[in-house]
Design a protein around this nucleic acid. Structure first.
Length: 494
RNA sequence: GGUCUCGUGGCCGAGUGGCUUAGGCAUCGGUCUGCAAAACCGAGUACAGCGGUUCGAAUCCGCUCGAGACCUCCA
């Protein structure tokens, strides 16, 4: 399969031509959320970015198997209750079953992503559903001599791994084990490790720990990084195309994942590592401890003190796509408001496009060049901001045709329609805002509006502008905006 | 402290050696309109600072200042 697509590979630090291992099939794994609290907007940005990537690969003709996990167990929490994982801690506090927490926030996660018009992944495996496989991988690494058991826990032996594979640990993050040693703080179980850089494959559970499973070593739970190694290889094979996640997961999570997969046969598990950048709020990193955070629900209702008003999911999605996925992006009211106007302009143009009449031939625009530019911008490491900039050239053309300053042939009109809607709906995953409901009586409202507009038109024709303006003002009070055109007035609810 | 990234016009945000004054929003002027709105046309303001490489740098190198990420769960 011929591909012009270039992607930035974190492993090499360069843009590389994308070549699928088994084209047209593509395997893509993305680290999903830990479902112990509501997803915040930063999480959403990552998943929207990968949704866009998933969509463009699909649009480009690839058959993508997109695997994104749900972490519902196993992540240690670093505070007073050391050794207890996040899920069970939250469960204890609220006196719920761990799986009740998991269920609640998994549903929340799915609901929010659906509002953002994300497509669901092909497979969404859970960590707790793959305990057997995780134990099995830990055994394999033990048998290979690259892990050791200590007091019921199993640790990955970074030194042994580095000797076996020529210092491979750190290949993704650029870290050196020597640098890590002096900076590692005292964690629970540190004394059980031979080396501070070693990380747990299996952890013995304390008596208080609710979530626990039997293993050859102890009643316990899987280590921090094991689930992704297991689930990616189970569903995509030992060698697959794309692995993604937020930048903050690069180290140690993804570094450890590589080590775990590579431990068995020394072969690199993933060809292209893609990392998305962080979202900040008013210039500051989102953080629950400082209160500088925003939940999707607060955004959609405007019920927060960070933003001046509510913003719809599609405006937020458009806003995020106006920045490149590898750039950090700052969230603010001003920026959102600007994006909202731009989004509406784009959607208005799409509506105009559907009403356009074709001419004998086209002039005033290089349509084929424009179509190529749209593809080229996405082929350049999914450069959605440039794509959107190019789309606005098409918007100008559309409006010019409407005003009679340019023309378009019927075949070009079809090409323009199909191309623009494909990029807006399929690739960017945008959709028009929900029409404001008029009590399910749209036809009646339309007819009534026609009567109102007709009487206003008569007033204007008889130069009774006072009456015409009065009608316009009264409608404006109802949030109805009029646009006078050659073919009569149009109206819309704002 | 260590590793790394970034600093673009009023705001957001592309662009990585020699026309991109990308694009969106905002501002100003014009066209259209009875007046508006919308749309279209035109305009302006920029590359953190200093020094270096080069015929030529926003783009490469060095330093300074500033911001951020990771080093510990984190999208």
């Amino acid at each position: 399969m011929e591909s012009k697509l270039q992607v930035y590979n974190s492993l090499s630090g360069k843009k590389e031509i994308f070549k699928a291992i088994n084209a047209p099939h593509v395997g893509m794994y993305v680290c999903g959320p830990t479902v112990y609290s509501e997803v915040h907007l930063g999480n959403c940005r990552t998943f929207i970015s990968f949704d866009m990537i998933f969509r463009y690969l699909t649009y480009s003709g690839y058959k993508v198997r997109y695997v994104r996990n749900i972490t519902d167990a196993g992540h240690l929490e670093n505070d007073a209750d050391e050794g207890e994982d996040k899920i069970s801690k939250r469960a204890r506090l609220t006196e719920l079953e761990p799986m009740e927490i998991v269920q609640k926030y998994t549903l929340d996660f799915h609901n929010v992503l659906a509002l953002f018009n994300n497509r669901p992944p092909s497979i969404e495996p859970t960590a707790t559903g793959h305990i057997v496989e995780q134990i099995s991988l830990a055994e394999d690494i033990l048998n290979k001599g690259l892990a050791y058991e200590s007091n019921g826990s199993v640790y990955f032996d970074v030194d042994a791994y580095n000797k076996e594979y020529d210092g491979a640990y750190g290949e993704l993050s650029g870290r050196k084990v020597e640098d890590l040693l002096s900076n590692t703080r005292a964690l629970d179980g540190q004394s059980e490790k031979r080396n501070p850089a070693d990380f747990a494959l299996w952890k013995k559970a304390s008596p208080m720990h609710i979530m626990r499973w039997k293993s050859p070593w102890s009643d316990g739970f899987p280590g921090w990084h094991l689930e992704c190694s297991v689930m990616s290889s189970k569903y995509l094979g030992n060698h697959f195309d794309i692995h993604g996640g937020g930048m903050d997961l690069k180290f140690p999570h993804h570094e450890c994942e590589i080590a775990q997969n590579k431990a068995l046969d020394g072969k690199k598990p993933v060809n292209y590592w893609l990392h998305t950048n962080m979202l900040t709020l008013n210039g500051q990193r989102m953080s629950k401890s400082t209160g500088n955070t925003l939940l999707p629900g607060e955004l959609f209702t405007g019920d927060n003190d960070k933003l001046s008003k509510a913003f719809s999911p599609m405006v937020v999605r458009f806003f995020m796509l106006q920045a490149h996925y590898r750039s950090s992006l700052d969230f603010s009211s001003n920026a959102l408001e600007a994006a909202e106007k731009g989004f509406n302009k784009l959607m208005d143009a799409l509506a105009v496009l559907n009403e356009l009449e074709a001419s004998e031939d086209s002039n005033g625009f290089e349509l084929n060049t424009w179509v190529e530019k749209l593809h080229a911008s996405m082929d350049d490491d999914f450069n959605t901001p440039v794509l959107i900039a190019n789309m606005f050239d098409g918007v100008k053309y559309i409006n010019s045709i409407k005003h009679g300053d340019a023309t378009i042939s019927s075949s070009d009109l079809e090409l323009l329609k199909s191309t623009l809607s494909a990029f807006i709906f399929e690739v960017l995953g945008l959709k028009p805002e929900e029409e404001i409901s008029t009590s399910g009586n749209d036809e009646l409202v339309n007819d009534l509006m026609q009567i109102i507009l007709d009487s206003r038109m008569r007033a204007r024709q008889s130069k009774d502008f006072a009456s015409a303006d009065r009608i316009r003002d009264l409608l404006a009070d109802l949030n109805i905006t009029l646009k006078d055109g050659k073919m009569g007035a149009e109206w819309e609810v704002k």
